[in-house]
């Protein structure tokens, strides 16, 4: 899978580094002082690297846990995110990571204990309500589980902190690390879903949507709280029909008593990221049609965004309790706040 592994000198002898290297005994190992020497270097081409990404084992320094942007949440006002990885195994054409990072190599921060400490600090400082910790903002939470043991380790940690909630955001169907243990009420497994017709074209390398639906259904059957993330909403031919069928397929399989939250998000990108992505994929129609800039964000023109959002919201609310519906903030909908 990985033919080359860059290793920060500071973590070269860390047990997780050694375990990972043992899994890839044939891979070439390249030392570096700081992962940024490789990952942040100028003149790199994300699209080219995505054909054969390397692995970078590094230490996360500085702030391990950060507050989420205002308005992002699934029921709490106290929300944080953290990233034990940078970049994703999949190659979704709409993903902002390809506009945010210069490199497509996958960075794994192996100092989990520092993340634990930072999470505990935030929990201690949060006295009024349940804090939420989101994983999967800069990566897929489950896709590299076979290498990182991320869920195995972090679920053990969160099992001892029932007053804090962890969200695992994923498109992966590698759920055995969850299925082999008892469910945690304070861990939401949130699946990103897109109609198959568009996912088949734009979510390169990700499991088929039908398999994701089966995976989330199985997890719900086993008692895991499930999140549904229809983000980004993508405008395409027959979008009404495709989104209706997607919702029907999900709710035909999912035990809704284990449904924790549902969110909708517009296709949105900071303008700088959009420009980089368009330069990487000048031949990509997704970046060519129906978009407009507002307040430094690129999104669908407001009339398209409104119709897409309103339709999906109305369809979803036929299936779910409005109290678990959390639309993401938008620059194109009703003065920035999704209805």
């Amino acid at each position: 899978m990985f033919k080359t592994i860059y290793v920060e000198e500071a973590v070269a002898h860390h047990p997780r580094t050694l375990a990972t290297l043992a899994r890839f005994s044939d891979a070439q190992r390249i030392p570096c002082k700081h992962y940024g020497e490789v990952f942040n270097r100028a003149a790199q081409n994300f699209r080219l690297q995505k054909r054969q990404p390397s692995l970078i084992l590094a230490e996360k320094r500085g702030q391990q846990v950060l507050p989420t942007p205002a308005g992002y949440g699934i029921g709490s006002q106290t929300n944080f995110y953290f990233s034990h990885m940078l970049n994703c195994l999949y190659d979704c054409r709409y993903c902002f990571l390809q506009g945010m990072y210069r490199s497509a190599h996958m960075v794994v921060f192996i100092n989990y204990e520092d993340f634990y400490e930072a999470i505990d600090e935030q929990i201690e400082q949060t006295s009024t309500e349940r804090p939420y910790f989101f994983s999967g903002y800069d990566c897929d939470s489950l896709a590299l589980e076979g290498i990182t043991d991320f869920t195995r380790d972090f679920l053990t940690f969160f099992a001892q902190r029932p007053h804090a909630t962890l969200e695992l955001r994923t498109k992966s169907v590698r759920t055995h690390s969850l299925l082999e243990r008892d469910p945690l009420d304070n861990c939401v497994v949130a699946f990103s879903l897109t109609p198959s017709a568009i996912a088949d074209v734009l979510e390169i390398g990700a499991p088929p949507v039908a398999r994701r639906i089966e995976a989330l259904g199985t997890l719900a059957d086993r008692g895991w709280p499930i999140g549904l993330r229809f983000d980004p909403l993508l405008y395409h031919s027959k979008w009404r029909e495709h989104y209706r069928k997607l919702f029907e397929a999900v709710f035909a399989r999912l035990r809704t008593d284990r449904l924790h939250s549902v969110s909708l998000g517009q296709f949105r990108l900071p303008q700088t990221m959009y420009k980089r992505m368009q330069q990487l994929y000048p031949d990509e129609p997704l970046f060519a049609w129906g978009l407009a800039e507002k307040d430094g964000q690129i999104s669908y023109r407001s009339e398209l965004a409104e119709s897409l959002h309103a339709f999906c919201r109305d369809e979803l609310l036929q299936h779910i309790d409005p109290n678990i519906f959390f639309p993401c903030p938008s620059t194109t909908l009703n003065d920035g706040v999704a209805p």
Partner: peptide, 27 residues
């Protein structure tokens, strides 16, 4: 070559990798 270091300045240069290494590698 996995990484080239200018020893006069101790500056490293990494070829950005998007292919399989063609043979064994070295700094």
């Amino acid at each position: 070559v996995q990484k080239a270091v200018d020893t006069a300045t101790n500056t490293p240069f990494f070829p950005a990798l998007a292919l399989s290494p063609p043979c064994a590698g070295s700094v």
